[in-house]
């Protein structure tokens, strides 16, 4: 319990730091952010209203406390561009991002788990070398380039899948699947390559452990040794990297979302940056960082549950 409290407390402290960074974003912009955001559509009345609403004339600390206070109640301000509440905009983009991230994670696990375990069990053989080369290639491929190659193959050449676009899962699951396939494969192959390498080295490490030798010398069948003693133990450290990959996909897939015209958080950030819509940039960055922290927190807590040694060592 003390561990849980300490870990949650740490996340909260970091989250507080994140809000400082997000708050500072707007104040680091050279010049007047409201004026810059309005650009050529400058209108003195609108300007005065936005300026007043943004609270930029008050002392910094007061502004920060106010920002923090309203953020806690779910109020992240209004968009400079559309006047809509930032929270509403973020929530409307969340399903696209989350459904893509989960689909990408599934692809990654389906690729990485068998390949990583197989490669470790055939350590040093030709098949292991091939898996290692393939995963090295996967780590090095720029995701947006892979996305373009997939479009080239499956849309332009074969005509099997639509090149881009999004349909909500709740509206038409089949059409959603057709559209999520390519972005999910793009994300999944890159993340899966990273995971394959972790799973491989983790399994290799466990294979050399004493308890595995004991299990083997007891005369247990290979399947039982593998299932009960090797894979289960090897997966514990892998949990961390799975968490990191999921968190990255939840917030960092801007380029893939752009290539596939996927209306998620990544595209939102990019559009908001281009339009200098700072409240939206702030809100999206805050939400992504918060999700990132939450996923890592959950993973760490799970990790401690599966492997009680963690609690002692930290």
């Amino acid at each position: 319990m003390a561990f849980v409290l300490r870990r949650v407390g740490h996340s909260l402290v970091v989250l507080l730091g994140v809000t400082v960074v997000v708050f500072a974003l707007v104040h680091l912009v050279p010049g007047d952010p409201v004026r810059i955001a309005m650009g050529t559509r400058y209108d003195p009345d609108v300007y005065a209203a936005l300026r007043e609403a943004s609270g930029l004339d008050r002392p910094l600390l007061e502004q920060y406390v106010a920002y923090l206070g309203s953020a806690l109640t779910g109020d992240l301000g209004v968009s400079f561009r559309s006047g809509e509440p930032v929270t509403t905009i973020l929530l409307s983009r969340l399903p696209a991002t989350v459904s893509l991230a989960v689909a990408g994670l599934v692809v990654a696990l389906v690729v990485a788990f068998p390949l990583g375990v197989y490669s470790a069990l055939h350590h040093g053989k030709a098949s292991d070398v091939i898996v290692r080369i393939v995963s090295q290639v996967g780590v090095s491929v720029p995701d947006f380039w892979m996305a373009m190659l997939l479009i080239l193959l499956f849309s332009s050449t074969l005509g099997w899948l639509p090149p881009s676009g999004y349909v909500p899962l709740t509206e038409d699951p089949v059409e959603w699947a057709r559209r999520v396939a390519m972005p999910a494969v793009t994300l999944g192959l890159v993340a899966g390559s990273i995971m394959t390498r972790y799973i491989r080295s983790s399994v290799l490490e466990v294979l050399g452990a004493d308890h595995v030798r004991t299990a083997e010398s007891k005369g247990l069948r290979e399947r039982v040794v593998l299932g009960r003693h090797v894979v289960r133990n090897a997966l514990v450290p892998v949990l961390t990297i799975v968490g990191v990959q999921l968190a990255t996909m939840l917030g960092g897939v801007i380029v893939v979302e752009v290539v596939f015209a996927w209306p998620g958080l990544g595209r939102l950030v990019l559009d908001a940056v281009a339009a200098r819509d700072y409240p939206v940039v702030q809100g999206a960055v805050l939400l992504v960082a918060a999700m990132f922290l939450l996923v890592n927190l959950v993973v760490d807590l799970l990790y401690a549950r599966v492997d009680p040694r963690i609690k002692v060592s930290r």
């Binding site: 994140v18 960074v21 990255t248 917030g251 960092g252 801007i254 990019l270 960082a289 990132f292």
Partner: peptide
């Protein structure tokens, strides 16, 4: 720790935004 809470590309884009 705080900087690690942001995905790499997102942080880079936020800096470019500024």
């Amino acid at each position: 720790d705080v900087m690690f809470a942001f995905p790499v590309m997102l942080l880079a884009i936020a800096i470019v935004a500024v």
